[in-house]
Design a protein around this nucleic acid. Structure first.
Length: 485
RNA sequence: GGCGCCAUGGUGUAAUUGGUUAACACGUCGCCCUCUCAAGGCGAAGAGUUCGGGUUCGAUCCCCGAUGGCGCUACCA
């Protein structure tokens, strides 16, 4: 194992300014996989220092998303809003070490200067004017009650670099890094300060996060050095894009993880799909003849996961592939495993099955190979669970258009009354000899009967359906064939 | 604009890290099966690796440049 020998401590640190989106979920997943792979610790930290935009409701939404995906954490959730003292102390340390200074510029002044710089074609960086104030004078002004922020004093020359576990060496000229604010004038830390203070305090060994943080990293590296703290391993994960290759956003459809739950996606399928977006297990993921295996349960994902399987380029979220994973999981699950998930769909659809538990299980077993989505069980498959179902107009138009067929089905229903065994063989035998006797093609009756029994043109083998529904229902539904709208 | 990162079929990724007819999965199309639709089986189309230069006997792979995409560029995170 190339990674550090001691057990890693990693974190997922969302800011509760929105629901758990797919990018965040994948970051959480990778951290979780990493921690579980090495028997390490996953810490959940809520970055809510932006009081304006953060809310408890969003925190709840994020936790719900994580629970749905089965991502459990070991410590936390910690709230940054409750750890303000730590950040202030850290800022003091930086100040005392000469790595930070008070800045008395007001927000308005800064905005104005920035606008001027941009207009003049200069980079809109802070001009460091307060850095030149004697620290004694600065302290006096502050003591006198003048409002001020604390800025980090970025070294004037040279460069700052770090070795990213995914991207390799990344280097930034210090001249490009502005003297960023650590503590706002109201005493609330900015992200740059709070992450570093917390990551150090929580003894994190690996920082696994979105690649959108690459440019922030040198600012953090500088602080680790100034604070004399051990440097963690940074691992930046490429971003997830929409089908048009722009950053995933609402206009691409669902962006919240919970929306996928609501769409009828099996959580394990979603997790599997997400894991393979920007990561591959390499040779371990191939089977004997070199073909890729892509269905990995959580244990296997944990076993195979490694930072060096993470790719450097952004990945496009492909709904078709997700749908494929979903069907694979639905097919692979036992009916009993599927039942709780299906029941949620029934509740949402205000549908109640009218059959015994055993019958429900065998009906699920019967139809699940044809399911693409958990929703199917509450929509197209209703006829297997209750008599309260509707006929798909397209199916009726396709197979029950012919009045003669409908009449024959009604007539056929009577033949089943005397079928005591009611097995697949007996039901088929009865239908085929009836068709022969009437001089019609068995297929026409089979297709018509399928619609009469299930309301759908798509169903499992007709005789398996008959056996599952039971004789009484079959007779009743066939007898009603003439009146189906 | 500046800085950084990335670049293999429509999508996700492989390619023993310079020697392959550039592989697999999803998707697409066709055929088989058949009572429908899935599934499954078989097969096909689809990239000569963004482009242009190097280095080399030989580049997907190394170097340079261009282009494109993405990210950052706040007293947001």
């Amino acid at each position: 194992m190339p990674e550090s020998a001691s057990t890693p401590r990693v974190r997922f640190a969302p800011s509760p300014t929105g629901y758990l989106h797919v990018g965040g979920a994948r970051t959480a997943l990778f951290n979780w996989l990493y921690a579980r792979h090495f028997g390490g610790t996953l810490i959940l930290r809520i970055e809510d220092t932006d009081f304006e935009r953060s809310s408890e409701e969003m925190v709840e939404g994020i936790l719900e998303g994580m629970r749905w995906l089965g991502l459990n954490w070991d410590e936390g959730p910690f709230y940054q809003s409750k750890r303000l003292d730590l950040y202030r102390q850290t800022a003091e340390k930086l100040l005392a070490g000469g790595h930070a200074y008070y800045c008395f510029c007001t927000k308005e002044e800064l905005e104005q200067r920035r606008a001027e710089s941009v207009a003049a074609g200069r980079p809109p960086m802070y001009d460091r004017r307060c850095r030149r104030i004697e620290s004694a004078t600065a302290a006096k002004r502050k003591a006198a009650g003048e409002a001020c922020a604390v800025r980090f004093a970025v070294p004037e020359g040279g460069s700052t670099s770090f070795d990213d576990a995914v991207f390799g060496k990344v280097e930034f000229a210090n001249a490009e890094i502005e003297d960023f604010v650590l503590l706002r004038s109201d005493g609330i830390p900015t992200y740059h300060l709070s992450v570093v203070a917390d990551d150090i305090d929580m003894r994190l060994t690996h920082i696994i996060r979105g690649a959108d943080h690459i440019s922030n990293t040198p600012k953090q590296v500088l602080q680790y050095r100034a604070l004399g703290a051990p440097m963690p391993v940074f691992a930046h994960v490429p971003l997830i894009l929409g089908p048009d290759k722009t950053r995933l956003s609402k206009r691409h459809g669902a962006t919240s993880v919970i929306a996928y739950k609501e769409m009828g996606i099996v959580p394990e399928a979603f997790r599997n799909f997400l894991a393979l977006l920007g990561w591959t297990p390499g040779a371990a993921g191939k089977d004997a003849d070199g073909k890729d295996r892509e269905i990995f349960g959580s244990d296997e994902l944990i076993k195979l996961f490694s930072l060096d399987g993470i790719s450097k380029s952004n990945a496009v979220f492909d709904n078709d592939k997700l749908a494929w994973f979903n069907t694979e999981y639905i097919r692979a699950y036992d009916a009993a495993e599927l039942l709780p998930l299906i029941e949620e769909e029934w509740i949402k659809a205000e549908f109640r099955p009218a059959r015994s538990n055993g019958e429900v299980i065998s009906a699920i077993e019967l139809v699940k190979p044809r399911a693409r989505n958990l929703k199917d069980f509450a929509t197209a498959f209703r006829a297997y669970f209750s008599d309260a179902f509707e006929y798909d107009p397209a199916a009726v138009a396709k197979f029950l258009k012919d009045e003669a067929v409908r009449a024959l089905l009604v007539e056929l229903s009577a033949h089943y009354a005397s079928d005591a065994q009611f097995t697949e063989a007996s039901t088929e035998q009865i239908l085929r000899s009836f068709a022969e006797e009437k001089g019609v093609k068995a297929g026409a009756l089979i297709n018509g009967a399928r619609v009469a029994l299930t309301g759908q043109a798509v169903a499992p083998s007709l005789f398996a359906v008959m056996v599952n529904l039971g004789r009484d229902r079959v007779i009743k539904r066939l007898a009603a064939a003439a009146t189906i709208q």
